[in-house]
Design a protein around this nucleic acid. Sequence first.
DNA 1: TTTATTTTGTTATATTATAACATAACAAAT
DNA 2: ATTTGTTATGTTATAATATAACAAAATAAA
Lengths: 165, 165
Amino acid sequence: MSFTDAENTTFEAFPKPTHDHSQCVKDALAKALAICQVRGVRFTELRKQVFKLVCTSHKPIGAYDILDTFQKRGRKTAPPTVYRALDFLLEQGLIHRIASLNAYIGCDFPQEPHRGQFVICKLCGEATELVSHTIEKCITGAAEKLDFQVQSRVIEIIGICSVCQ
Amino acid sequence: MSFTDAENTTFEAFPKPTHDHSQCVKDALAKALAICQVRGVRFTELRKQVFKLVCTSHKPIGAYDILDTFQKRGRKTAPPTVYRALDFLLEQGLIHRIASLNAYIGCDFPQEPHRGQFVICKLCGEATELVSHTIEKCITGAAEKLDFQVQSRVIEIIGICSVCQ
DNA sequence: TTTATTTTGTTATATTATAACATAACAAAT
DNA sequence: ATTTGTTATGTTATAATATAACAAAATAAA
């Protein structure tokens, strides 16, 4: 369930440790599948497996964590296999990359193209996504004044979440 | 020369290729020196050399570029030497790290502690710094609603600068 | 069912960053 | 000035993240 506040920021509440995560994964998978079907791109078994691993929790996961999991499961996997699947998922907007962590997280709003803005807890590692139109506007405004054509943004807010305080 | 706009965003104009860059370096060095003196921390020769290399241009520079330059100059240097100097400069707020590029850039406003917000040109690699209080407020607002304690942020805007269009 | 395209596998290597321990330089106190 | 503690740098090795280049397999299109 997502919220939209007075400043026109949409966000998911910070994931509570008690929430039913299997439902998150189920929902995310269903959405991803539907999106790929509509777009006529292939949600192959490999990509699905990588996506599921990224969605395993709301903590951003590293490419090599995914690799290790595959290998522990007995699947002989090399880095490019994982990175290619991640690249596909990034292109389709099904996941985001967290630059400050070199890690990947499932997208909460994959239906519509958007730029993720993230709030990341240093202690538990959990992260949640914002879509703030105010931040967007402010960035757009500053960019215009600089005569700068914006193509992408990295917005990551790091600190301590409500659960960990 | 920096500007402040109606949305309370302070920024440097995107560096023009014609600007007198030696003056930038001179100013930055003077500021850095003064700041270190006031704080009673040591702006050693190594740190100064690394700082000068970071300030060589307004393009964020990689740690290994700095390393290579030292080595080309005949100074036998290993990565930790460079990273430690960078860490010092980061701690003192004299430079910033650009997470999306794994690179480092001189700070335009080192006098006062602040969070850098960056606008980075994909084509020429040049970058400039913003200090937008509106973005700050928006982040703070969203964080409050999430009951989240903000410690740091990564704000990087990527696109095409006025010069490269 | 051949052909073209896309996806995945495989090997090697590039890039960025840090751990761990040794030495040197400096500062403070006798 | 000289010992002592502290900070900074040197050195070696390695960890962590990511990509290049080419081969094989799977799928889609003709």
